[in-house]
Amino acid sequence: MRTLVSILIPAFNAERYIGETLASALNQTWEKKEIIVVDDGSSDETLRIAKTFERANLKVISQENKGASAARNVALSVAQGDLIQWLDADDLLAPDKLAHQVTLYRNCIGGRVLISGAFGTFHVNPQRARFRPHSLWQDLAPAEFLFRICTENIWMNPAVWLVSRGIAEAAGPWDERLTLDDDGEYFSRVVASSEMIRFCPEAKAYYRQHHTGSLSRDVSQRGCESLLLSLQLRIRQLRKLEDSERTRRACVHLLQTWLDYFYPEKKDLLRQVYGLAGELGGTLTVPPLSWKYVPVRAMFGWPAAKKARRLVSNAKLSARVRIDGWLRPSVRSWRW
């Protein structure tokens, strides 16, 4: 019997992109698939557009706005697949992505094997996506995978994964308390619930960077509380797999990487971060600041310098998106 793959898509105000995302899911050459879209209370035309794609193997669910993690949990609760493909409502899959990964999965004998793949970043035109390999693009043991994330500050787009039902059940649901770094926390559990990660270089996903995304730096109290909780949970997962001097150093490095979110204005949370680093046997240093923003910090303080950096980063990204839009072919129905 052929393996059923569930493609799960949470969507919120994604009217500009949901059509292309659903087309990339429907165009998968792996025929035995179901697609579940959960509209999380969108205020635009996302739900209407998604419903125009409904058919026997594509279901659209609507709920009041509860957040991305809640929408993903709803999709997972109704999924029937043996394998789970997560896909954000603005990202894309190469047509043969699932076919390559399912084949690799079925060739793996025994154990909880987790399948990863390659991803490229694009703004408007996926034909110009940039694929930048890094040290996670290979077969790895779970502890080594999480260790490298901590020490190298690298990331895997959620769409790269093909997750077996057994691993998904062992990992548990998405944590609905989290609004920031929810994917980092969830996939740390997924990785920790596996026995081996197999990398499939032919399986390609496309990550659309069309807005500020992580560059927006959600520095609200709620966002920073979510980030701290996520970091605590991610550190717990790595230490469950391997509690050694090298993994504790890696966890301190992870805290240092994200310290900028808390420093210096989130004093209560900052004390917790410093305390956690101390428990791990390490210390944290003042986050680095490019020379360009040192005068702003000197005159107006750290918060103003961080805001200036965000504005410049966002302006650069907006310019790249506009340029890519101008260069995009006039025919929208591109193919890989």
Rank of each mutant, 00 (worst) to 15 (best):
Q85D: 11
D90I: 11
R130Y: 13
Q85L: 07
W137I: 15
F122G: 03
G111F: 11
G110R: 06
A141N: 11
G81Y: 02
L98F: 00
R132Q: 12
R128M: 08
L87T: 10
R128T: 05
L140V: 04
Q101N: 01
G117N: 09
Q80R: 14
I115N: 11
L87F: 03
D139R: 03
Q85C: 07
F131W: 15
Q138E: 06
F119N: 00
D88K: 05
V124M: 02
R128W: 12
W86E: 09
Q101V: 07
P142N: 02
A141E: 13
H123C: 04
A118E: 15
F119G: 00
L83Q: 03
L87G: 10
N107I: 09
Y105D: 01
F119Y: 14
P142T: 01
V124P: 04
G110T: 01
W86L: 13
A99E: 14
A118C: 11
N107K: 14
C108T: 09
I109M: 01
V124A: 08
N107P: 01
D88I: 11
I115D: 06
D82T: 11
I84K: 02
S116D: 12
T103N: 15
A99F: 15
S135Q: 09
H123M: 11
L140M: 03
R128E: 13
I109D: 10
G111A: 10
A143G: 05
W86Q: 14
A129P: 02
L136Y: 07
Q138W: 02
Y105G: 03
Q138V: 08
A141V: 08
Q138S: 03
W137P: 09
L93K: 14
H134D: 15
H100Q: 13
Q80H: 15
L104K: 12
C108V: 05
L104Q: 10
D82F: 00
P133K: 02
A99C: 07
N125Y: 13
D96W: 14
L140E: 08
L87R: 12
H134A: 00
D139W: 06
A143M: 03
G117P: 08
F122K: 06
L93R: 14
G81H: 05
K97P: 10
L114Y: 07
R128H: 15
S135V: 14
V102A: 01
G110A: 12
L140C: 05
L104G: 07
D96N: 10
R130D: 10
D88C: 06
Q101P: 01
L83T: 15
H123L: 03
R130T: 14
R106I: 04
G81S: 07
D91R: 02
R132D: 13
T103V: 12
S116H: 02
R132Y: 00
A141R: 09
P95M: 09
